[in-house]
Simulated scan of single mutants.
Amino acid sequence: MILIHSLGVDWRMWEPVMERLAAGRRVFAYDVRGHGAAAGAPAATDMSGLGTDLVGVLDTLELERAHIVGLSIGGAIGQTAAVLHPERVASLALLGAPDHPIPEAFESRARAGETDGMDAQIAPTLTRWFTPEALAANVWGVRYARERIRCFDPADWAATWRAYKTLDVRDRLRDFPAPTLVVAGELDAAAPPTFMSGVAGRIPGSVYRELPRAPHMQSLEQPGPLADILEAFLPAG
């Protein structure tokens, strides 16, 4: 199983669910280009490149196929890889993940990082990602995400948002043969249930689940219920 994180953080956003998912499974999480240990790598220019990076991870791990789980841009990367190389994807779990971009919003976020700096991105980003209760309690997931955004390189931030603008998978997974799960957070302000049910509707045979009380950062605020859904969907052993 390969876990792909959201834009602006790194592989550690999966730590709250990894132990449970690793029961009977080999689980890997990597840093997307421009994030974490991959910060400063040659900038991503489009989603096809990020999808090809995922296939490169499979090659490096000597995995012919893998179950792909991605949140937000991580799910977009998984869908892109599934379009380019469906034979490499054993199943696909899309958590708050779009199948088409919002170009104006993505470009606005790219420019904001370049012109205003990363400290100015913390409040609007965390407000999209977490519930007011989690923000007020300043739980570990909030503290972790805040620090990742603060330390993020503005050039990597802008490049990734602009690569995200090139997402082109809508209606291209209609013949995708592998099992697909679509999970919407009930309280997700970035990819609400009405949006994610549309993603599920464009992938015939997909399973749609709604995660109660979950915002966009499902693994950081509702790890137990998310692990329940993923464990029910993914094979073990």
Rank of each mutant, 00 (worst) to 15 (best):
E210F: 05
H216G: 09
T80R: 04
R26I: 11
A112V: 01
R143Q: 15
I4K: 10
S219Q: 13
P132C: 13
S219V: 03
D46S: 14
R128K: 04
F130C: 09
L3E: 11
D188I: 11
G113A: 05
R170D: 04
L126E: 05
G237K: 12
L126N: 06
H35R: 04
I149H: 05
G113L: 14
R128Q: 13
F106C: 08
L7E: 09
L135I: 09
A82R: 12
G224P: 11
G56F: 10
A82N: 09
Y208W: 09
P101C: 03
I2N: 13
A41R: 12
L181W: 03
A23D: 14
Y144P: 01
A184F: 08
V17H: 12
V55H: 12
H35C: 09
F233P: 13
W140H: 15
R213L: 15
L173A: 01
A90G: 05
V139T: 15
G51L: 02
D175P: 00
L234S: 11
A191Y: 09
G201T: 00
V32N: 08
T80G: 06
M217I: 09
A184S: 11
G201S: 02
A191M: 15
T160F: 09
V57W: 12
L63F: 08
D153P: 08
R150M: 06
L211R: 00
A136N: 13
V32C: 13
W140L: 15
F106T: 02
D99N: 14
L54T: 04
S72C: 10
G36S: 07
A120N: 06
D171R: 05
V182G: 00
